[in-house]
């Protein structure tokens, strides 16, 4: 007996251009609970643009995105607030400490603040350090904490392991593996690391 998975993300025929530069030209794909969709392609092939469209941070010119979470269909606005997103364009308030940043976003997300300590411990990040003085590897760890704060079902990961040393890669990889027990992920530019549970591979043309 085949049950339909509780969470499923699918997108058909996405187009997006910037002025005269067409970045996405008819991209389609699908991923469901427990799976990873791996997105690869040359620089400028539209991997980050695709993830932004999936996150609801950008509207595709054409095409459909459909996301079902715990058997309810979410619209673009709900999807934006529901997903976890790790990407190089994610920054935090430099005047605030790591913990204050996460507390602020936890309050906005109306989610429990108890997870913050646990997450910071998992990625080994000092809570009192000001976000403006973080090294690039530490900033990447903070991005992971931000993405996992509200225990999202869907993780959208763009260059998720950039700048991380090997303990950092191990910590985030184990977070990802744990996430995939009940969730799903779309990963672009994972570097040389081998990803867990890759079910689909989408190759974008340059």
């Amino acid at each position: 007996m085949q049950e339909s998975p509780p969470c499923q993300l699918s997108f058909q025929n996405l187009y997006r251009s910037f002025g005269r530069l067409a970045v996405l030209r008819g991209v389609s794909g699908e991923v469901s609970t427990g799976q990873t969709l791996l997105v690869t392609g040359a620089n400028g092939s539209g991997k980050s643009t695709l993830l932004k469209c999936l996150a609801g941070l950008m509207v595709p010119d054409r095409g459909e995105i459909s996301y079902r979470q715990d058997n309810t269909q979410l619209d673009a606005r709900e999807r934006r607030l529901a997903i976890g997103y790790v990407a190089p364009d994610l920054s935090f308030y430099e005047e605030l400490t790591v913990e204050e940043n996460l507390l602020f976003f936890a309050r906005l997300r109306r989610t429990s603040e108890d997870r913050i300590g646990h997450l910071l411990e998992r990625v080994n990040l000092p809570p009192d350090r000001s976000a403006g003085t973080l090294s690039s590897g530490m900033l990447q760890r903070l991005r992971w904490c931000f993405a996992l704060l509200h225990q999202p079902r869907l993780l959208l990961l763009d260059e998720p392991f950039q700048n991380l040393d090997s303990p950092g890669q191990d910590a985030t990889r184990s977070l990802l593996e744990q996430h995939l027990d009940e969730g799903l992920a779309v990963t672009a530019n994972p570097g040389l690391l081998e990803l867990p549970h890759v079910a689909h591979h989408l190759q974008l043309a340059g």
């Binding site: 187009y15 251009s17 002025g19 005269r20 530069l21 067409a22 030209r25 010119d61």
Partner: peptide, 8 residues
């Protein structure tokens, strides 16, 4: 603009 973007 669209046609130059998508059809190069």
């Amino acid at each position: 603009a669209d046609s130059t973007a998508f059809h190069g």
